[in-house]
Structure formats: C-alpha cells, structure tokens
Design a binder for these strands. Sequence first.
DNA 1: CTTTTGCGTAAGCCATGACTTACGGTAAGT
DNA 2: ACTTACCGTAAGTCATGGCTTACGCAAAAG
Lengths: 108, 108
Amino acid sequence: MAYAKALQCLSDPTRRRVFERLRSGPQSVGVLAQGLPVSRPAVSQHLKALKEAGLVIDRSEGARRVYCIDPDGLGELRRWIDQFWDAALESFKSEVERPNTQRKREKP
Amino acid sequence: MAYAKALQCLSDPTRRRVFERLRSGPQSVGVLAQGLPVSRPAVSQHLKALKEAGLVIDRSEGARRVYCIDPDGLGELRRWIDQFWDAALESFKSEVERPNTQRKREKP
DNA sequence: CTTTTGCGTAAGCCATGACTTACGGTAAGT
DNA sequence: ACTTACCGTAAGTCATGGCTTACGCAAAAG
C-alpha cells in the first residue's frame, strides 16, 4: 500500500512542482530548487519524501545529487485509481439519469 | 486543474476509506459513517470535500442523502498521472543501468 | 401537530507538516 | 592543505486541516 504515501506526497503543491520539473529529465537539487519559491533545504526534504514514496530515485554524480522519476510509485498509484474506474462508470450511469443528482457547483 | 483538489482529497486516510466504501455502490451518509472510527459530521465534511473535488456526486432520497463516485475527477487525475508515465519510463531506462542509482530503502 | 430520523454547518481544539536558519560532511577546484 | 560548491539533517516556528460537540433544518413517522 505504497499508494498512500504517493498520494500524500503529491498532495503538496510545492512537491508537485518539484515532481513536474523532473518530467523534463533528471535534475540536480540545486537546479530543481532554482526558480521555486522555497529554499534549497526545503526541496531536499521534498525529494526525500518523494523517494520514500517510490516516486523518484537518485544517484550521486560527483558532488551533485541527481534525481529522476521512478515509474514504480507512479504505476502503483495508477493501478489504485483504476480500481475505482470501473466501479465508477458502472454505478454512475444509473445515477446521472435521476432528476435529483447534483454535481459540484460550477461557476456561472 | 481539478487534479490538485483530487490529490489533496485522497491524501487523507479517512477520506480514502469513505471513497473506497463507495466502490461497492451508492451509499447514504449514515451507512458510510457506520463502521468508521470517526463521527458522522466528520464523514459529512469529507463528502463535501470529495464533492468539491469532483470525485463524488449526491442526490437526496427522501430524508437521506445518497453519495456515488463521479468518474470526472477520477478521470482528470488519471490523465494527470499519465502525463508523467511516458516521461518516467523514458528517462528511467537510462538511469537504472548506472551503478550508483539508489531506490527507496527496502526493509530486509 | 409533535416526535424522530438523517444530515449539514459553526466554532473550537489540537496534531500534522511545510518552511526557515544553522550546521556538518563530502567532493571538486586552486 | 585550504577554499568553495553542493547537499542532507536538526531544531524551531507557524499555518493548515481533521476531529469533536453543539446546533439548526428538512422529511418521514406517529
């Protein structure tokens, strides 16, 4: 049940920004922190959490430390969501037809 | 960018338990709260958050209020994760071969 | 009409966690 | 060897949010 840690990790906006930066390829900590509105130690702590959740891996490249997205945590998260997907579509069809059904209120 | 709200919602363990209960079909608030280690108002607040995130819909059935999983929020979350999936596999292959790469420490 | 059931909301309490600064430790540069 | 660059960790601060109890409202039951 590593999906729990993955969800908790990705719930933080700053941690998502770090993770999204890794989408363009492996990056060092300093480069990742550059441009973010938080300090470098904060990014280090975020990367530690992401690693603990199985969302990234890291290697030491000289004095630098390069991080990279790990498909493992991402895959487990995908599988967890897919568990709901089928059940959702099934019970959803018979619900939307009802006259009373209410979604989230949209901004008009 | 409703995926942000969805992630924040599903990061809470109790909220996940509520959401997982809805996998077996539409349920009323009282039934959902029954068996959970929190009070019924707490479940109501969780359902409000889930609805705001587009993860559930609700209809009033007499005095009761029945909740049901909404595929919308789930789908957007799936699409967001898939954004990383391709980039992850790509940059991952060239990383795991390196001698230095470190994953999360497993419990031996 | 009165009572009971079912639910949402308000106010307040308290733990979690995200951020900061300060520090120590390793690798590269001079 | 000394300095500089790069990074992780520790300690402390402060906001976020999850939970509780108390209350109010609507629908069914009597």
